[in-house]
């Protein structure tokens, strides 16, 4: 019975919610509303689970003097300082985020916000460094990714079309450099001809491409985002949705039971 009753509850709840979507009339719409209200209450309680997990995990680290235990101590102290400050401030002003709340005016605005913003801002340094190291034209796919990313990056900022001129010029020079280099190792006359052809096309096409992008960088960026990007994203979304439906059905029908373990 320990397994059967939760499975039955899951089945009834899941089934009724699905029915309510297709028949949004009494009594199903009321049932869905009630279930949603329960869900909101249960979701509130998940915070308690989170706190429980945070405290126990870090307390265990401190107790065992595991590596980095002072950080765990900092977490627990910060948690209780925040909690107590928040409660005191909330009781005194009616709400922790009231305009005259010291929790909001000192803790939230001058400690929490700058700390979190700083943590996130650090990412920009890693992204710049990672882009420098990872965006190498090692293969054709990598080169295409590199070119597309560069166009979108320039297309998303003002003056991007102006910066495009030196970028394309350097890219063409680099391509010529690679082709000339490759020619030294190519023995087949056909292959040599192809390489020379690519070089000539690159030089001839560079000017019109630059001119076109200079005037149409924004629409080209929009096209990249709205067509190839969106096609990949839609495929991903459809896959995710189908996967979600399959897992939901397995849970409702009691085939998938791992959530109970």
């Amino acid at each position: 019975m320990k397994r059967e009753i939760p499975l039955l509850i899951t089945f009834i709840a899941g089934f009724l919610i699905v029915v309510a979507l297709f028949i949004p009339h009494p009594p199903f719409n009321k049932i869905e509303e009630t279930f949603n209200s329960w869900y909101i209450i249960v979701a509130g309680f998940t915070f308690i689970l989170g706190i429980d997990s945070l405290i126990l995990h870090n307390w265990e680290k401190i107790r065992r003097r595991s590596e980095g235990w002072p950080f765990a101590l900092t977490v627990i102290l910060s948690f209780f300082i925040t909690l107590i400050w928040g409660i005191v401030s909330g009781v005194r002003t009616g709400h922790i985020f009231s305009t005259n709340s010291t929790f909001r005016n000192y803790f939230y605005l001058y400690i929490y916000v700058p700390l979190q913003a700083t943590m996130f801002a650090i990412l920009s340094f890693f992204i710049a460094s990672a882009a420098y190291r990872a965006f190498r034209a090692r293969t054709l796919n990598a080169t295409l990714l590199l070119l597309t990313a560069s166009i979108v990056m320039l297309g998303r900022v003002p003056l991007g079309n102006v910066a495009l001129i030196p970028v394309i010029s350097i890219a063409v020079l680099m391509l010529l450099w690679v082709l000339v280099d490759e020619l030294k190792y190519v023995t087949s006359p056909t292959q040599r001809l192809i390489y020379i052809g690519i070089a000539v096309v690159a030089v001839v096409a560079a000017f019109p491409i630059t001119k076109f992008l200079y005037h149409n960088l924004s629409p080209v960026t929009d096209w990249i985002m709205n067509v190839p990007q969106m096609a990949a994203k839609r495929g991903l979304f459809i896959g995710l949705a189908l996967g979600g439906i399959a897992v939901s059905l397995r849970i409702i029908l009691g085939i998938e039971q791992s959530y109970m373990s």
Binding site: R133, F135, S150
Partner: peptide
């Protein structure tokens, strides 16, 4: 805008070095 230009400059430099 300037950071985007800088990142592209770094990418170009990295590729020149790689080649």
């Amino acid at each position: 805008a300037f950071v985007h230009f800088l990142i592209i400059a770094f990418i170009i430099l990295g590729n020149i070095g790689y080649l």
